[in-house]
Each structure stands twice: as structure tokens, then as C-alpha cells.
């Protein structure tokens, strides 16, 4: 790994100023994605801006409409939170299914959303629940935030500070875990929200997407059978060493049915 300067700012404005002024600098939160990337030399920033010291970004708070979760809340914090288990239990279960205990002790929700890995779990929850991503300068609706493979609407010196999740009437999540990494081969999050049924799918290949076919079927009947046999076209799925497109397309219906069962449980 190439050596880098290491900055530990104490406020969000300081962190943003460093990102803007120090060339080739990158924020680091839990490092569970960034450090493997640096170790493999897929990136070699000249400076890291450690977000860990930014005050207040670990909080998980109740709001009238749902939950406000700080960018630095770790997967383990969300998984163990009584508040999350009460207001959006599917989100707590999703957080508890990420990676393994050691990954969950370091990885953060802000890092996961900023990274937007096409097989990551949190993007599916954020998109299905109609979350808003809060940054140092604006709020971005999840519908406008995820722009495909590892791409987001974040600007170069923009930091996620938190995420607000409206609580759904009910929601569920199911994924087929890759046996080595635990990322989703395909994962489906279903939510019955104030704005109707929203379904988001991760692992299909090109980043998280909503699935109108499933949303329409579930609007008619919110039951596993409504989606279990509804086949999506394999053309919209990727083939790689983990799974072929036809298998992924099949998995999508299986995971959607399980997610609905999870929401009804």
C-alpha cells in the first residue's frame, strides 16, 4: 500500500475543507471497502480524511416520520438498535446480515451508500424505503442518488452526514448470500410505504434498481404468491463468475417472494 497523509478533522466543515484543498484525498469511514481497495492498489490516494472524529454522526434517532441515522452508524449499531428493531425491523435484520461480525463492527451506513457497490445491501433498503441521503450541503432522495455501478450523485467534496428513513407500514428483505463474501448474489427489499409499494433489487448487475413488475403485482396482492412465479427478463441481469443472468433473473422472484413473507411475518 502506498503511504498517505492522514487527517483527523474534528468537524464536518473541516473535513469538507480538507477534501476540497488536499489533492487526491479520500474520506475513510470504516475502511471495510476502501482498505481492501488500497491493499490491492486499485486506488492510491495521497491523503485520507478520517471521518471517525466527526461529532454526532453515530446517532440513531426517532423522528415522527421514521428514523434519522448518522453516516457513521456502524452495521452492528443498526443491527442491535432497539429503535430500528421497533420502527423498521427489516432494516435491523438487513444490517445484521452484512458480512460478518468483524465487518459489522467497522463498516458504516454512510460508507456503504457512498460506495454503492452493485451487490451491497443498504442501497436496496434506501431505495425501497424512499430514504433521503443527507449531505453537508443538501438532501438527496434515494431515487436520484444511485447512478449505477459505484456511481452516486455525490460531488467530489461532498460528505454523507446521515440518512433519513420514513418508516413503512411493513417491509421485508431477502438475499441469497454469496458464500464467501456474504454480499447479495441477488437481494430484494419490499416496502409498503405511504406512497405505495416500492421494491428495490441489488445484485442484478448494474447497481440497485426499482422493479416495477414486482411493485405492480404486489399492489394488487401483497402476498408471496403474487411475485413467486413472475419471471423478469434475463437481459436486464449480469452474468459473472458468481451467477449467470438466467439464474439471477430466477433468484429475483424467489427473493421477492421471501422478502414479502419476511414483511408479513
Amino acid at each position: 500500500m502506498r503511504d498517505f497523509a492522514y487527517h483527523q478533522p474534528a468537524t464536518v466543515p473541516d473535513a469538507v475543507a480538507l477534501l476540497g484543498s488536499v489533492s487526491e484525498s479520500r474520506p475513510i469511514a470504516g475502511g471495510m471497502t476502501l482498505l481492501p481497495t488500497l491493499k490491492n492498489r486499485l486506488a492510491s490516494p495521497s491523503a485520507l480524511i478520517d471521518l471517525a472524529g466527526l461529532p454526532g454522526l453515530q446517532s440513531i434517532e426517532e423522528r415522527s416520520f421514521g428514523l434519522a441515522i448518522g453516516a457513521l452508524a456502524r452495521h452492528a449499531d443498526v443491527a442491535r438498535s432497539r429503535l430500528v428493531a421497533t420502527r423498521i425491523p427489516a432494516l435491523a435484520r438487513l444490517a445484521g446480515s452484512i458480512g460478518d461480525p468483524a465487518v459489522r463492527h467497522r463498516g458504516t451506513i454512510g460508507g456503504s451508500l457512498a460506495n454503492n457497490d452493485p451487490a451491497a445491501d443498504y442501497p436496496a433498503a434506501a431505495l425501497a424505503l424512499g430514504a433521503r441521503i443527507v449531505t453537508n450541503r443538501r438532501e438527496i432522495p434515494a431515487d436520484d442518488f444511485f447512478l449505477g455501478l459505484f456511481e452516486t450523485a455525490l460531488g467530489p467534496d461532498e460528505l454523507i452526514t446521515g440518512v433519513v428513513f420514513p418508516a413503512p407500514k411493513r417491509a421485508g428483505y431477502a438475499k441469497l448470500r454469496n458464500p464467501a463474501s456474504r454480499y447479495a448474489v441477488v437481494g430484494v427489499f419490499v416496502a409498503e410505504t405511504a406512497n405505495g409499494i416500492r421494491v428495490a433489487m441489488t445484485g442484478a448487475g448494474n447497481g440497485v434498481v426499482r422493479v416495477p413488475e414486482f411493485e405492480q403485482a404486489l399492489a394488487t396482492s401483497f402476498a408471496p404468491e403474487a411475485v413467486a412465479h413472475l419471471r423478469l427478463a434475463p437481459d436486464d441481469f449480469a452474468s459473472d463468475m458468481h451467477a449467470e443472468a438466467a439464474y439471477r433473473a430466477h433468484l429475483a422472484s424467489v427473493m421477492a417472494a421471501r422478502a414479502v413473507a419476511d414483511a408479513l411475518a
Binding site: Q8, G31, D50, A102
Partner: peptide, 24 residues
């Protein structure tokens, strides 16, 4: 960061020391 042979306890919590920077 997958094998766990490097796990240590940081303030009592299991973490992967191969995926942790010393300044932390």
C-alpha cells in the same frame, strides 16, 4: 479481508487487524 485469522479485540470488539489502520 475474508479469512478472519487476524481478528483482534478493539475496545473489546472483534475486528480484522488486516483491515484496520494503525492511527485508529
Amino acid at each position: 479481508s475474508q479469512c478472519g485469522a487476524c481478528v483482534v479485540l478493539l475496545d473489546g470488539e472483534a475486528v480484522k487487524s488486516c483491515t484496520l489502520l494503525a492511527p485508529v
